[in-house]
Computed example of a mutant assay.
Amino acid sequence: MTFALRAMGAATSLGAVVQAAAAARAGIVRASELAQSTCLDEVTHERVALVGHTAGPLTEGFEGIGRLVQLAIATLVDLEASAHGTWWGQLEVFLCLPRSLGQGTNPPRDSTDVAQLLASRLQAEARFIPAPASLHLFQEERGGTIHALEKAMALLSERRCDQALVLGCDSLVSPERIEAQLDARRLKTPDHPVGYMPGEGAVALLLERRDPARERAAPPVAYLFMPTAAQEPRSLDAKAPPTGHALEEVLATALARAAATSVPEGSLYLDLNGEEFRAREWGQTLLRARDICRVGDWQPVIPAMSFGEVGTVSPLVSVCLAARAFARGYGRGRHALILVSGDDGHRAGLLLERGPLLQRPLTVIAGGVQ
């Protein structure tokens, strides 16, 4: 069963959805020094600034929950612009947040309490979004984002709502988050090149059931299949290198669900971010999957190269990039597969199918692109 992606919104280091996808396609990167976050260079024994992907003026001067509110409101404004005139029926909202929301606060606060405060701030400030029938909170990093999509699609299929708004927010560049990442030696530093650059962002997706009559008037951006999931017992949290078994399972299941195991063309969105264990797992997955599908021929895309590591929001950023690639005509084939690897061993595959609205192919003409 597939669901219609009606509209998208985002706030990233490269801007809103349309601008961010175009900038990433062009190879533009806006990484910068994090003035408030430094590390010790073991060669020079001097403090040097860390490098990350911030949302610039949008979050400058904000900390903690204030930073996430800024990202979320800008994302909902972007969503509302593309969803103009499409709000109808009963709406359910699914809010995806990091599990460490209370980390670094003084005094320390319960993560769930902070999440509830953030949700109430969003409901108070986003008056342009219809009041939801209910709001669901997920705080399980990448896995929570996938669970939110699963829950949203389940409620849509059961006709318990007409539309589902999935919103993810995360900021790994916040000073209160940086220290823990440094202690775990996960960040890219002068003496640790196999780490990631922290990023931040928010993404919102508006989902509906497939409705032929409604789609004739306003075709959706793309179609989403129900996510496939598996559990990898050997993971970062388990302090054991993953083997690729679970990732191979979700890859094969997702492609089989769309009858795409023998399809030679498609786009593959990977959440590789510079960490060695992720690259090793993907290499092992490719070796295991070569006998069951032709995914090695698909076009790989690594969003972290453009946005840094965005944690909870990572799967949704990939959805936006894949949908915009379809809309602009440079997405390969009819499908895009997003692979998700959580630190807790949760593995998932999210498949998108090109929407029914065929875009006019780009034509190079004198003086530019038409």
Rank of each mutant, 00 (worst) to 15 (best):
T2V: 12
T2P: 04
F3I: 00
L5M: 04
A7W: 04
G9V: 06
A11I: 06
T12W: 02
L14Q: 05
G15M: 01
R25K: 15
G27D: 03
I28S: 09
L34W: 04
S37D: 14
T38V: 11
D41N: 14
E42T: 12
H45W: 15
R47S: 15
A49G: 06
A49I: 02
V51D: 02
T54I: 04
P57C: 07
E60F: 09
F62L: 15
G66N: 15
R67T: 13
L71T: 03
A72M: 09
I73V: 14
D78F: 01
A81D: 04
A81I: 13
Q90I: 03
E92I: 10
V93T: 09
P98S: 05
G102L: 00
R109A: 13
L118W: 00
Q123C: 13
E125H: 05
A131Q: 15
H136R: 14
F138G: 02
Q139R: 09
E141D: 11
E141G: 11
E141C: 11
A148F: 00
A152F: 03
M153C: 02
A154T: 14
A154Q: 12
L156K: 03
E158V: 07
R160M: 09
V166I: 15
V166G: 06
L167D: 02
L167P: 00
G168M: 14
S171I: 04
L172V: 07
E179K: 01
A180I: 13
Q181M: 06
L187K: 03
L187F: 07
H192D: 05
G195F: 08
G195N: 07
M197T: 07
P198H: 01
A202R: 04
V203P: 02
D211M: 00
A217P: 02
M226Q: 04
A229H: 07
Q231A: 10
L236E: 13
A240M: 01
T243D: 13
E249H: 10
T253H: 14
A256S: 06
A256N: 07
W282F: 10
T285E: 06
L286Y: 03
A289Y: 07
R294K: 15
R294M: 15
Q299H: 12
P303V: 08
M305L: 15
V317E: 09
V319D: 01
R324I: 09
A325T: 01
A327V: 12
G329I: 07
Y330Q: 08
I338F: 00
I338Q: 06
D344G: 08
R347W: 01
L350P: 04
L351K: 06
R354W: 05
L362F: 14
T363R: 14
G367S: 07
G367T: 01
V369D: 10
V369W: 12
Q370S: 14
